[in-house]
Amino acid sequence: MSSAADHHAEVDPAYRLAHHFESPEQQFETGKFGMWAFLVTEILFFSGLFTAYSVYRSNEADLFSYASGYLDTTLGCINTAVLILSSLTMAWAVRCAQLGQQRGLKFCLIVTLLCAGGFMGIKSVEYHHKIHNGLFPNAHFGAHEDPDGVPLHITDESGATVANPAARPAPENLRSFFGIYFCMTGLHGLHVLIGMGVIFWLYLRARRGEFGPKYFGPIDFTALYWHVVDLIWIFLFPLLYLIH
């Protein structure tokens, strides 16, 4: 056991070199490649949802153009900007860590966290509207209003519920669209939450001054993860919100 410890005796402890690596470069490159490989698994994890999306969109174009009208483009657009901003601050956090700028690092991490929180806040407002409108795909699924806000059902003179002639009637497979919508955005939101947890942990470590020019791998690798979360949203936004 002592031999490996001796082996690294001459390496500056600031590198935090683990026993099974030869050099700080090897440790950093290994971590980085590991993160890229993990990102590939993330991309393929989402691939199922993109496949479901593509299959349903290519076969039911009308459904998608109708149902997309339920989504709030303004909120979606704001959320895109918020997430892009968080990506910027996360990339900046890496720079700060690389240059040993401790205050900048902590500031960037906090701003990233705030942006992520804002994103989830806006997302929950959107979810609330959908659920309120009966668009959550569970046993109680059934839209109350059409995408323009016109009630789908009205009460006629005799008190019976009838279809509202002024509303655009909902297509048959509306549930499938919202199934895909909630699965895609829900899984993406889950990734945002996980990212927030990790970034908060990084912030605590940064407060203890653990990162610097010789050791910033965790910041760099988490940033890569965070950018992929951003990348996925960059595709989700036009695919879900901006359908004609």
């Binding site: 490649f33 991309i43 691939s47 990506s87 990339a91 960059i234």
Partner: peptide, 26 residues
């Protein structure tokens, strides 16, 4: 995002290849 925020432009080429291969499988 990939080239600049994720440093791919300045990174090992192999990391980019891995990422692109993942996307090709999707």
């Amino acid at each position: 995002v990939a080239l600049y925020f994720m440093h791919l432009r300045y990174d090992k080429v192999f990391n980019a290849i891995v990422f692109v291969v993942g996307i090709l499988f999707v």
